[in-house]
């Protein structure tokens, strides 16, 4: 278990940062939509809790005729 305390945070910070940016970007886009495919609120947990695949799924399948 100790091994992970040795994680080099500088190494994975960009990874986490990028995913965060992706999530926020998806959320901002989501907020601007009047309508989505499927109930609008449903996309929130998908975007927030399904890391990376959630926002991607939203961008590909979530939006109507943009």
């Amino acid at each position: 278990m100790q091994t992970f305390t040795e994680l080099n945070w500088a190494l994975i910070a960009p990874l986490i940062g990028l995913q965060l940016i992706l999530m926020i970007f998806a959320l901002v886009n989501w907020a601007k939509q009047d309508e989505t495919n499927g109930p609008k609120w449903m996309w929130i947990p998908i975007i927030v809790f399904v890391s990376m695949i959630g926002p991607v799924a939203y961008f590909i399948f979530g939006r109507k005729n943009v």
């Binding site: 960009p14 990874l15 990028l18 995913q19 940016i21 992706l22 970007f25 998806a26 886009n29 990376m52 926002p55 991607v56 961008f59 939006r63 943009v66």
Partner: peptide
């Protein structure tokens, strides 16, 4: 529509 942003980010994440 954000393609210019999400696509590169996703590729960067998958890559790294």
């Amino acid at each position: 529509n954000g393609k210019w942003i999400w696509l590169p980010i996703v590729m960067m994440v998958i890559g790294m």
